[in-house]
């Protein structure tokens, strides 16, 4: 298991957002998380990537405990800062709003973290960055600044940036929601290619056909709980739960 999340509880003030969520991701898995807005799916992703702290439960990366709740206590304890920072090297995160660094050009956006954070060899990182740019179909845009790129191009740079850290798992938080409809295709194509390469990925998305095509597993969340999970054919095609069915009906309408 690359990622295990067990009995995750998370609330903002008194509002309970995640209620006892348990799920795991195996190497090579592509997991899509769907659900209505406010269902807690983005919060789950933010907890997995340490942008939010959990109240209780357990998070493990490749068998190592990142956070756990000791027996008899109700508050989660996180591992040492250095350990958490090491684990951040295991995953990459792609945001809905891209969050590229506007003052860096494409190359620097991709290369800065490997050089600054991981202190890797510059020539090597540069070579990899060029390869990633080619893979994302951004040749010739190496020295463009984010403001000079379309949304779809920016999101592809963001994916390249996430991949530059050589992560074992890639998280996507609604990667196409901020894009004009005609630009979603180029981003989804890139993600599909990554799936074909057996990249482990967790994708929070509203693109049902895409989720169906690309996922090994689909998780449907509502009201802070996992209502249903399983193969895309079942969850998206013939769900066992009434709430899933309702959601899909509303969605397709």
């Amino acid at each position: 298991m690359i990622l295990e999340m067990n009995h995750i509880q998370k609330s903002f003030n008194d509002l309970s957002v995640l209620k006892d969520i348990t799920f795991g991701v195996d190497k090579g898995d592509v997991v899509s998380i769907i659900g209505p807005s406010g269902s807690g799916k983005s919060t789950l992703l933010r907890c997995a990537t340490f942008l939010e702290t959990i109240n209780s439960g357990e998070i493990l990366y490749e068998g190592t405990v990142a956070a756990s709740t000791p027996q008899g206590q109700d508050k989660a304890v996180y591992a040492q800062k250095a350990e958490i920072r090491r684990m951040k090297g295991l995953f990459g995160l792609v945001f809905q709003q891209f969050n590229l660094f506007p003052h860096f050009d494409v190359m620097k956006n991709i290369m800065d973290a490997p050089l600054t954070v991981q202190k890797r060899d510059k020539a090597e990182v540069e070579e990899e960055a060029i390869a990633l740019i080619r893979k994302m179909g951004l040749e010739g845009r190496e020295h463009y600044y984010p403001c000079q790129l379309s949304g779809g191009q920016q999101q592809r740079v963001a994916i390249a940036r996430a991949l530059a850290g050589k992560p074992d798992i890639l998280f996507f938080d609604e990667p196409t929601s901020a894009l004009d409809p005609e630009l979603t295709g180029e981003v989804l194509k890139v993600i599909r290619e990554l799936a074909e390469e057996k990249m482990t990925m967790v994708i929070v998305t509203h693109e049902m056909p895409f989720a169906k095509a690309v996922s090994d597993r689909v998780i449907f969340m509502d009201g802070g709980v996992i209502v249903e999970q399983g193969s895309p054919d079942i969850v998206l095609g013939n769900p066992t739960q009434e709430r899933t069915r309702q959601f899909l009906q509303n969605y397709s309408r």
Partner: peptide, 20 residues
């Protein structure tokens, strides 16, 4: 989002402040 992107990429607080 700038802080979050840097945090997810593993930048320390000081690196985030100075570089980003």
């Amino acid at each position: 989002g700038q802080y979050e992107a840097a945090e997810a990429l593993g930048y320390t607080k000081a690196q985030t402040f100075i570089r980003i």
